[in-house]
């Protein structure tokens, strides 16, 4: 672990409509490592990434990246800051009107004045790193889900960012693709000296590469620590999540009236 954290989240509050999603979250993402943010589905992990990326504005608290308060920045400064970040979306989010090569070249074209040959070399390097140099002429619609995510990864690292955010990189992938992505995230992190934030609920894959883990549930940080220390944590909710038990402190049932009364159509005083 290195000196000052790259991303600091302090007392973050956020609610969507009536529903409170975060009730005071504190996170510190150390420089140069892979930090995993885990938690059951629906706890707002993707929302957290969007808050860090400055796409959503919190109700309270702040997000500081490299000493800059993300939500106090002007639109122009925010876009400048984002050039130093890469984000891998759950769906890949490739531009459907551009082919694979143009997708990877896109950030280079819009943010640099490099000559065409250099853009070509850089884009091909990134594609080579994810093993899809041969697929450069394909359109996004022709790619499998795993390939699309790898192309999106190549695009996310096209500008050699300092910080890469991964939104559910393993979800919906077959075991081989999962293995490939785990390898890629780890290798890229080491080779490029990135700081990575991985948001996921795939426990095995995430724990195998993470240096530090935050577990979020109920709008709060439930536990944090290195993967080894986390398993023995005594918090029942965390251990339920880590061990993948179907019911426990995190309930199997969505909050509802008493089943018996509901079935019989009895009025319930609420």
């Amino acid at each position: 672990m290195m000196d000052s954290p790259v991303v600091e989240v302090e007392g973050l509050h956020f609610s969507r409509g009536e529903k409170e999603i975060f009730r005071g979250i504190d996170l510190q993402i150390p420089r140069g490592g892979i930090t995993a943010i885990m938690g059951p589905s629906g706890t707002g992990k993707t929302t957290l990434l969007k808050l860090i990326g400055g796409q959503l504005v919190p109700d309270g608290g702040r997000v500081v990246i490299d000493g800059q308060d993300v939500h106090a920045l002007s639109r122009r400064d925010l876009f400048r800051l984002r050039r130093r970040m890469g984000m891998l979306f759950q769906s890949g989010a490739l531009f459907s009107d551009l082919n694979v090569f143009e997708n990877v070249a896109f950030p280079l074209r819009v943010h640099t004045d490099l000559p065409e040959t250099m853009i070509r070399d850089l884009a091909l390097m990134k594609l080579q790193a994810v093993g899809l140099r041969g697929a450069r002429e394909l359109m996004p619609a022709e790619l499998s889900g795993g390939m699309a995510r790898r192309v999106a990864l190549a695009r996310a690292i096209a500008l050699d960012p300092e910080l890469v955010l991964y939104d559910e990189p393993f979800v919906g992938q077959d075991p081989i693709s999962k293995g490939v992505l785990v390898q890629l995230i780890k290798r890229l992190n080491e080779a490029l000296g990135l700081t990575s934030i991985v948001v996921s609920h795939d426990i095995q894959e995430t724990l195998s590469i993470a240096d530090y883990v935050y577990v979020i549930a109920d709008g709060q940080v439930m536990a944090h620590g290195t993967p080894d220390s986390l398993d023995i944590d005594e918090d029942p909710r965390v251990s339920q999540f880590i061990h993948g038990e179907p019911d426990g402190p995190v309930p199997f049932h969505y909050p509802a009236d008493d089943f018996f009364n509901d079935i019989l159509g009895l009025e319930v005083q609420s």
């Binding site: 969007k50 639109r75 984002r82 989010a93 999106a152």
Partner: peptide
């Protein structure tokens, strides 16, 4: 819907 606009924003393009 396919997050292309969001990802464009994250790349730093308006």
């Amino acid at each position: 819907a396919t997050e292309q606009l969001t990802s464009m924003e994250m790349i730093g393009v308006d």
